[in-house]
Design a protein around this nucleic acid. Structure first.
Lengths: 213, 213, 213, 213
DNA sequence: GATGAATGAGTGTTCATTCAT
DNA sequence: GATGAATGAACACTCATTCAT
């Protein structure tokens, strides 16, 4: 009988709607300043309804991270698995992937950074906690894998690939947050895409192993 | 009469003590999760006393930004004004300055990023707001100035210096926050200084204008 | 037409099913801690359905009291109306009745005691309120009647029979609740039936008029 | 310096004031229906203030139990330790003690019974939990000790003294609650003291070992 | 100036009740 | 009739801020 399935689908859709609303509000205000009521209003629901779909504010927030991390992994695994003629091309694909990730959820970072407070982790169900950890680990390994290819190929400097991961991720998220901050202060220059392009270009040039080296 | 001056000095010293305490707590817990009582305890004062020196939590926090921005400007202006034999040396001085800034207040960034919420700006006195804006603008101009020297000198690629500023600042703050996040998740690798060194090295290599170019 | 009657019977049966489920849950958790959803789950119905049969949680709860009070009255009226050879035998029948009442719904008491909050009475329909009052009065009169027989018969001390009623009822309900409490605290001794037997024995011996008196 | 001591005393007094207010409200409405705001209003304080003295609603409530249990133990230990010429006199002292306990806090029972919900125990600090358990155990042992004297003395029937404890306690608390219930229903007869006297008299007579036995 | 007890508005969460399907 | 998703009022608890001492 398709009825159950339809109900199931509608339930899932509602959950997604809430997540979309939550993403918007969390992105704008940050975790602490976002009230459940804000999210409810954004989703055109009442506060109580949110709790039919998510156990708590923390869990709702965490589930956004899951979504983003899944997206990130999908994108990175594309970059890894696709055959490229040159490392150069793979690098371009990586940059494209980072752009996509940015488009998908600019505030990944806010999300991820919020987790800093280990207190907020207390309320999270261990399963969710585990899932996030697993996904995050996989994402970092994926990135490291891409760099390892370049190192093995003598294309980029011989640095611990995890260091490169840290730098790329820091660069990426740092720029996003910095552009956000600038917006608030109404500074003129915020050309995120251009900044990204230049940043990645510099990063890639900086990693490149000189022929003479 | 020196009495007034002594009083003044003591008041200033007390204010500094509170700021030091506040910095420690804000750095550890972030703005929202820091209670005034936490700061009071750290400063070995009572909560009420904080309000003799700062109008509000927001203002206390903002004043930390002022301090950091002042520090940043001093450091950057050293880099600008000191005569160096080569741009290479100036670059090394800049990196050193960034290290110093990091030592001075790793969480500058948290601080600065917190300002995202434009609502929290409402409570800030316009003077303080102005001061921060002025200092921030000066800091960014200072950084841009340093890069301009390199551009004029044909040492680094011809990119809008403000873009380089955004990238350097994003890189810097992004790495700090990312390392903080990693700590929470107890991931093994967090060697902030090494990561910094590698990151700046890559950044500098990436900016460097090839002789052949 | 029997259709209406069948419908009527089915409706009544459904109502009874709900009450049975409700009794179980109320007994286990107490009034306030019982959620309508708990009862619905126990009855294998949806929450909304409960409201087709009962106007509110309070009314559902009250209707349980009605049922218990009816049961009590039936039992007590047996004890009154049955002819016994001696008061002694009637007394034994009373004790048996109390056992039966306990078996029927140990938590009568919880139920009855819950009514303490006069606020909760506000929501109850006056008819239900009246019915409970009438039934309770009848139950107390029935008990008093039994004692009056003993007094008239010179078998038990000459005390206002209502006082004896209060004592018996207090003794009965107090022991039930106390044993419940002990369970929670995992104290070893909870042998409710034995305690009951001993308690009633003492009560009867204590009421017994000495031959010499 | 006496200042600290005075502050300490005032703090203790305030705590007592809150407990008195809480006792009144809990007694009238029961645990669940009592809002912290009610207690605050009764104590002429704001809700927040209650939390300066008690960690939670549950802990405030539990601390009332502690107070009552302490009082009970003091009273019972008097009955045990005082030398009496006859068991008869000791019994009278026990009855007097029960009266005193009733005067001190009629709702002991409500308090104690509320603990039924093991869920509410979760929030209680283990220390408090322990304290209550210890005090309650001591109270029960004290009561049992008194009965043991009577048994050893051949004054009362040879029943497990703990059974007598259960019965006495059930009788006592049951009558109190029953009288409370009657009040709500505005039944005429509520002469608690008389009922108590009669109840204890019956209980004692019922326990008494016949000379002929 | 310094204190710290008191305040009370604000927020996450629960749950009796409703109502569109 | 039955459902169960949605509602929204209610309530425990927090914490920036104030003010009597």
């Amino acid at each position: 009988m398709g009825i159950k399935q339809r109900k199931q689908r509608e339930k899932e859709r509602r959950k997604q709607e809430i997540m979309v609303a939550a993403k918007r509000v969390f992105s704008k205000k940050g975790y602490d300043r976002t009230k459940m009521e804000d999210i409810a209003r954004e989703a055109e629901l009442s506060p109580g309804t949110l709790y039919l779909y998510f156990k708590s504010k923390g869990e709702l927030h965490a589930s956004l991270n899951v979504r983003v991390l899944q997206f990130i992994n999908i994108k990175l695994e594309h970059v890894i698995n696709e055959p490229f003629d040159s490392f150069e091309q793979r690098q371009q694909a990586l940059i494209k992937a980072m752009h996509d990730i940015y488009e998908f959820d600019a505030m990944v970072l806010n999300n991820v950074f919020h987790l800093q407070s280990s207190e907020s982790l207390k309320k999270m169900s261990p399963e969710l906690m585990d899932e996030i950890n697993t996904l995050a680990t996989r994402a970092l390994r994926n990135l490291a894998g891409i760099f390892q290819v370049g190192i093995d190929d003598n294309q980029i400097v011989d640095v611990h690939p995890m260091a490169l991961v840290d730098i790329l991720w820091g660069l990426f998220s740092g720029i996003v947050m910095w552009e956000e901050t600038k917006k608030t202060f109404k500074r003129k220059r915020y050309a995120l895409n251009e900044t990204f392009d230049t940043a990645f270009e510099i990063f890639i040039r900086g990693m490149r192993r000189d022929r003479s080296e």
